[in-house]
Computed example of a mutant assay.
Amino acid sequence: MSTDAPGGEAEITVSCLQFEPRIGDLAANRAAGLELIEAVAEAGARLAVLPELSDSGYVFESRAEAFALSGTAAESETIAGWAEAARRHDLHIVGGFCERDGGRLFNSAALVGPDGLIGVYRKTHLWDAENLWFEPGDHGYPVFATPLGRIGALICYDGWFPEAWRLLAMQGADIVCVPTNWVPMPSQPASLPSMSNILCMAAAHSNSFCVAAACRIGTERGQPFIGQSLIVNHEGWPVAGPAPEERPEVLTARVNLADARRKRRLNDFNQLLRDRRTDLYDEMLGTDLTPGWY
């Protein structure tokens, strides 16, 4: 693993880039994302996270529009731009893009490093009208080994499913990056953190990994988004954010990814993943995924 500071085993600087993509404006969205990436990289970030569908915008009017704003992972100009920035700055980037694969579309997140595209996660739980444009993800829950640590990804509504978080933990994820476009929940009490933030905090705590969630802001074709990006440590406590609801914000925090493993024990008797009752439920929740070292 990388050491980013004297005495800081696997300690890295993580940034979440909260901004407002514009539906259909690929060039401007790419430029806005790259401008933020350049700024955080020059400030020392080693891992940057952008919102869901950060290149295309979110509220499509038709499948034809979504298809026109998509690209394959191998040929995406968005990913090519991220890869160039990652190469120049020795940076890793996770960002949402509209992925085309033959005649299918996916709401996807790419992980890019200094050597180019590392892998793609496809959103597995589609929200509302996404079901009209996208196919449910078919890549499972990959965890990518990088010089920084083991990186997993979820997208927005995926975070409502504890199984998704747990399968990433069981494959050894040290940090889960969440490109997201959270929307208001009508029943949300104003006095409490947003449900999306609570779910990120709970998942980080119960699985002992860090979470970096980057949300968009603004209103697109009548749909408002809530911002409130945040970075959570392995104990479940925010170390940056939540960001404001209505303005762009760059969140930056230092997290020690080794703590996700070294400090998983809660006391002399309890360790979160070891204490699972696998005599009562399947270790990998009935999937054919292979557990990693945890």
Rank of each mutant, 00 (worst) to 15 (best):
E11F: 02
A68D: 12
V239K: 01
G119K: 03
L111P: 08
N181S: 15
I198E: 11
T3C: 10
W127Q: 13
C210V: 08
D138S: 08
F106A: 02
G236K: 09
V143D: 07
L266I: 13
C156E: 01
R276C: 10
L117N: 04
A153I: 01
L17Y: 09
F144Q: 12
T180R: 13
F97P: 01
A240D: 06
V250P: 10
S56Y: 00
G113C: 07
G137D: 01
V176L: 09
E20W: 07
A260H: 03
G119A: 00
R46M: 11
W127R: 13
A74Y: 06
P189L: 08
N107C: 12
P179Q: 08
E11K: 13
P6W: 09
W165Q: 02
G286Q: 05
S229N: 10
V232N: 02
G71Q: 11
T252V: 08
A240F: 07
E84R: 15
V178F: 04
A83P: 12
H139W: 13
F134G: 00
A45W: 00
A31C: 05
A110M: 00
I79G: 01
P224C: 04
P136N: 04
E35F: 03
G137N: 01
T290K: 12
H92R: 11
E246A: 15
A260D: 03
L34S: 02
H89A: 13
E235C: 10
Q188R: 08
L91K: 04
S70D: 04
M1R: 13
L289S: 14
V143Y: 10
G172K: 07
A212N: 06
Q171I: 05
I231W: 05
I217T: 06
F225L: 09
L167R: 13
E61G: 15
G137F: 00
D115C: 02
M1F: 10
S76T: 07
L111Q: 05
I151T: 07
D268Y: 12
A10F: 09
Y294R: 10
A213D: 06
L289Q: 15
R265G: 09
A48I: 03
A48L: 02
W293A: 14
L251A: 04
V14I: 11
I198T: 11
T72W: 01
Q171L: 05
S56N: 00
G113Q: 07
L26S: 09
R265L: 11
S187P: 04
G292L: 07
Q18K: 02
R46D: 11
G116I: 06
P193Y: 04
R276G: 14
P142N: 03
L148G: 06
P189Q: 06
P6S: 07
A83L: 11
A243D: 10
G33Y: 09
K263G: 03
S54A: 15
C177A: 09
I231P: 01
I151C: 05
V14S: 05
S62N: 05
G71T: 05
E35S: 14
D90K: 11
